[in-house]
Design a protein around this nucleic acid. Structure first.
Lengths: 150, 150
DNA sequence: ATCATATCGTACTAAAATAGTACTATTTAA
DNA sequence: TTAAATAGTACTATTTTAGTACGATATGAT
């Protein structure tokens, strides 16, 4: 479905929330209540974000989570890659050649080309851009693509 | 997972196969055997392709399927849209505003911007391009994007 | 020291989406 | 009339995704 999972959507929401409270440590409970994502789910996501070094955590009383220093500058491509595991559109175009019909596939590496294009499209947008939509609007308006519509 | 379904992958494979046998009618059985996709699945996909006017069908004895005239010129974006139903990356960025946390979402329409970029990336590649990879390689080499890597 | 409050890791369960199959009806050329 | 093909639909199995729970560990305050 060319679609990221709900979890990744939540994750970005949470990251954005952390970005708003610059540097300050927030507990999972606070984050859950602000983003309206259920507490257990918030916790789960925050742990993952921490493992992937997108947020820093402090254990114990008055602990919590805060944004890593350079997380704001991470590209959406890199973000989705760490959160969703892979940016490939199709499985058969992944690096590990597990495709069953590979030998008979006359599409060849066309999917890979498409993957690459998508990746390019996402490489230029940072998490910081997501939080400041106006900046993106400006950004996009200067990148009118070749049109070959249908 | 920013990933299209197996079914769509199969569909493109089948379309490519039909494109190779230009205009000639092939039975579902033939297509299944050539693409190594199971017969029932091939049939299922071919029916869908037919309903979406990507292939034409002839019923009865000596019937079969063939590519619609202008299917080769359809963009990958349009292709994925008809096959996968939607090109949106996230659900909340779909047109129908069903997002539960919409009111609290400070990402705003950033996802929509990203969706747009991806859509642009896929608008310029046609099904025909997929079948002739060399043409794509050339195509891509002339479209070096702005790099802001991570 | 102890306690209250956090995160951490892991395992488990439920729900939803996807994939695959089967069956009956209809069409068509020989 | 018959054989061979598509058309529609409904059903089942599998896989992925989402959500929850629980015991362990860490930390600051009292």
């Amino acid at each position: 479905m060319l679609r990221i999972t709900k979890m990744t959507d939540y994750a970005v929401l949470i990251l954005a929330n952390l970005a708003l409270h610059d540097k300050k440590f927030l507990t999972a409970k606070e984050i859950a209540s602000e983003t309206h994502i259920s507490l257990p789910t918030s916790q789960k996501i925050l742990k993952k974000l921490n493992r992937n070094n997108l947020v820093i955590s402090k254990q114990g009383a008055s602990g919590g989570y805060a944004l890593e220093d350079d997380t704001k500058n991470i590209s959406v491509a890199a973000l989705l890659k760490t959160l969703n595991g892979d940016l490939s559109i199709t499985q058969c175009s992944s690096n590990d050649h597990q495709c069953q019909v590979e030998d008979f596939c006359n599409i060849g590496d066309a999917w890979q080309m498409i993957n690459q294009r998508v990746q390019w499209a996402l490489n230029d947008i940072t998490l910081g851009d997501l939080i400041h939509p106006t900046r993106i609007e400006q950004f996009i308006s200067t990148n009118i693509p070749v049109t070959r519509n249908h």
